[in-house]
Amino acid sequence: MSALTAIRARRERSVERPPGGLGRTPVSYAVLVILGLFAFLPVLVLLFNSLKTSLELGTNPLGPPSSLDFSNFVEAWTRGSMARGLGNSAILVAGTILGTWLCAGSAAYALARLDLPFKRGVETYLFVIISLPVQMFIVPLFFLWVRLGLINTLFGLIVIYVALNTPFSVLLLRTFLVGIPRELDEAARLDGANELQVATRVILPLSWPGFLTVGLVSGLGAYSELMFAVTFLLDPAQMPGATSFLQFSQGFTQLYNLVNAAGVIIVLPLIILFLLMQRRFIAGLATGGTKG
C-alpha cells in the first residue's frame, strides 16, 4: 500500500516538473529536432529503399520512392527463408520467456516469501553472476554443449538465454513479491485457499507487471541476441530471424531494396510492440539495460 502511494506521488511530481521558461524553448526544440532527425532519418531510408525497384535505387539512392512497390517483400520473404527464420525466432522467444518466468518466478517466490536457508548466499551468488561477462564462460560452455548434443539446437540456445535472464529477473521479481502485504495471503488462507491458489489467485495478479517486464526484456533479448546465436547455431535451418538475415544480407550485398525489405519485416514486430506498450518497454530496458 505504502509502495503504491509512493509510486503515485513520484508520478505526480514528475508531471509537475518545472516548465522550461518561454524564452528558452526554441533552442531546445531546434536541438531536439536535429537529434530526432539524426536518429530517425536513417530508419526512414531503410523503409524508403525497401519499396524501390533496383532501377530506381541507382538513380534515387536515399529519397522517398516514386511508387510503392511491395514485390521486394515477397521476394525477400521467399529467398531469405524468412518464414523459417521468424518461426525459429518465435520458438526461441516463447521458450525463453516461459523458461525465465518459471525459473525466476519460483526462485523469487522462495526468496521473498518462503523459509529459504542461505538466503543471503543465494542473493550474493545472483549479484556475482549478473556482473560476470559472457566471455568468462562462453568457451567451455560451447564445448560442453557439443558434448551434450545441445549445439545447433534451439532448445540448447533457449537454456542459455534462460540462464542469462534468470539472475536479474529473480532480483526484479523479488522486489515485486516482497511488496505484496502478507495479510493478503493470510486472509486468503483463512478463506480456505491452498498454497497453489494463494500463488496463482493472490500473488500472481498483484505481481504481473513484474512478470510482464521480465517477459518483455527476455523476449526482446532472445529476438535480437547475436553472439550466442551465431556461435551456437551453425545450421541455417535452426537460425532465428536476425542471424538468417545476416546471412541473407551478406549474400546479396548492394541489393539494398531486397535486403532492406527483409530488414523491415524483421523490425516490424518490434516497432508495433513498442508503440503499443512504450512505457513498459522503456522501464524494462532501463532495468535490464546492460547491453552495450
Partner: peptide, 27 residues
C-alpha cells in the same frame, strides 16, 4: 520515441541501415 527507436532495433538491421547509407555507390 524517435531517440529510442535505434536502441530498440536489432543490431543486424542497424548495421544494414548504415551499410546502405555509407555505401560509396548507393549511399
Amino acid at each position: 520515441v524517435l531517440f529510442f527507436i535505434p536502441y530498440l532495433l536489432v543490431s543486424v538491421i542497424n548495421a544494414q541501415i548504415w551499410r546502405n547509407l555509407l555505401d560509396p555507390e548507393l549511399g
